[in-house]
Amino acid sequence: MKLNNVIMRTMTQMVFFIIFLFSIHIFLAGHFAPGGGFVGGLLMSCAIVLLLITFDLKTVQNLLPINYMVLTASGLALALLTACISAFAGEAFFTHYFDYFTLPLLGKTELHTAMLFDTGVYLVVVGVTMIIIQSIGGDE
């Protein structure tokens, strides 16, 4: 399926990045406000699906040469390792650590290990969703 629609193509090129940034925003907002890795990941895969609708599968593969299975596996590995950090430290599995850091530009920031776990979730959601969509939309 290839839509030769100039308006769609031009808009998609801009909107893709807006959705991408918004998904990062939703992801980062996660801990105290609505959002998180799952929603962020779904938004990101929506952005990729938009690309898929506008261009065809092959172009998108060239644009984003990602092996989604590896992406999923890395996400799972990241999530599992984060959960294991506390086990190595001798505390119960999944124990959550956080602290305040002063970062350049951002100032005083609160950093959580939950964030790492959520990054894993984000990657898994993007990976799994794209695998599903590719396996249905892959053959015409």
Binding site: F38, V128, T129, I132, S135, I136
Partner: peptide, 20 residues
């Protein structure tokens, strides 16, 4: 509910692919 939604999302997606 969030957990159950995620699970049913995964199962439904798998079921759709299988049906196809």
């Amino acid at each position: 509910i969030l957990t159950a939604i995620v699970i049913s999302f995964g199962v439904t997606a798998f079921f759709l692919v299988l049906a196809y």
